[in-house]
Computed example of a mutant assay.
Amino acid sequence: MQKIVPFLWFEDSKAEEAAKFYISIFKNSKIVNTMRYGKSGPGQEGSVMSVTFQLEGQEFYALNDNPQFKFSEALSLFVNCDTQEEIDKLWEKLKEGGMELGPGWVKDKFGLAWQIVPRLLGEYLSDSDPEKSQRVIKAMMQMYKLDIDKLKQAYEGK
């Protein structure tokens, strides 16, 4: 078990639904454990209290509770992608019932923010030539879903 595990608080008994949704999107993912309320509650006996799941080997803990707390963009899950096909697939699935937020950011139907980013973006943005990185930033700021070809063209000055 990893030492630090993201703990996600879902409202209205959505933890299990969310975990199943996420594992359907990411390869090498699975439900690890589902805990249910017993007779002593506080939820209805037999209903899901929490779900532990893995996405690409990263463990998450999802809790069902009241809607007292909501997700915000102050916390997002950052996904490094190697291909445009991977970006397109993740983007389309995560935005179903959710919304596009801005360059590389999408909020899913549960309110969780994701950053779907090409792995090479970090290389482009940290280039020692500030003109290259600024061209990439300018191109990126005109996108919702990031486009590897357009970012590469900006980096190369085309």
Score class of each variant (00 low, 15 high):
D149P: 04
Q115P: 01
E85I: 10
P103S: 11
Y37H: 12
Q68L: 07
R36G: 02
S50E: 06
T52F: 14
G98Y: 12
G38S: 11
G57M: 03
A154W: 01
V117F: 08
Y144K: 14
Q142A: 13
M141G: 09
N33Y: 10
G111A: 07
L112W: 02
R135F: 10
L120K: 10
L94K: 03
E85Q: 15
Q134I: 00
G38F: 03
K95F: 13
M141T: 13
K27R: 14
C81V: 08
N66K: 14
Y124H: 02
L94G: 00
E92Q: 14
M141P: 09
T52N: 11
V51G: 06
P130C: 03
K109D: 07
Q44K: 15
L125H: 09
K39H: 12
V48G: 06
D127K: 04
L101H: 08
M35C: 02
M141F: 14
A74D: 13
Q142K: 15
V32N: 15
M99D: 13
P42A: 11
L63E: 09
L63Q: 12
L55K: 02
V106Q: 00
K152G: 04
G57D: 00
L75V: 15
L77F: 15
D149G: 14
E123Q: 15
G157Q: 07
S29P: 00
V136W: 03
K39L: 09
S128N: 12
K93T: 05
K39E: 14
L120A: 08
K109R: 15
G98T: 04
L55Q: 02
K39M: 11
V106F: 03
S133C: 12
W114E: 01
L77C: 08
W91T: 01
R36T: 01
A74Y: 08
Y155Q: 05
L63N: 09
Y61D: 05
E59W: 09
A62E: 04
S76W: 09
R36W: 02
I148D: 02
D82I: 02
L75C: 12
Y61R: 12
A139V: 06
E100G: 09
V48K: 00
W105S: 05
S133F: 08
L55C: 08
T34R: 06
S76H: 13
E86Q: 15
K150G: 09
G43H: 00
M49V: 01
L146A: 00
Q68N: 06
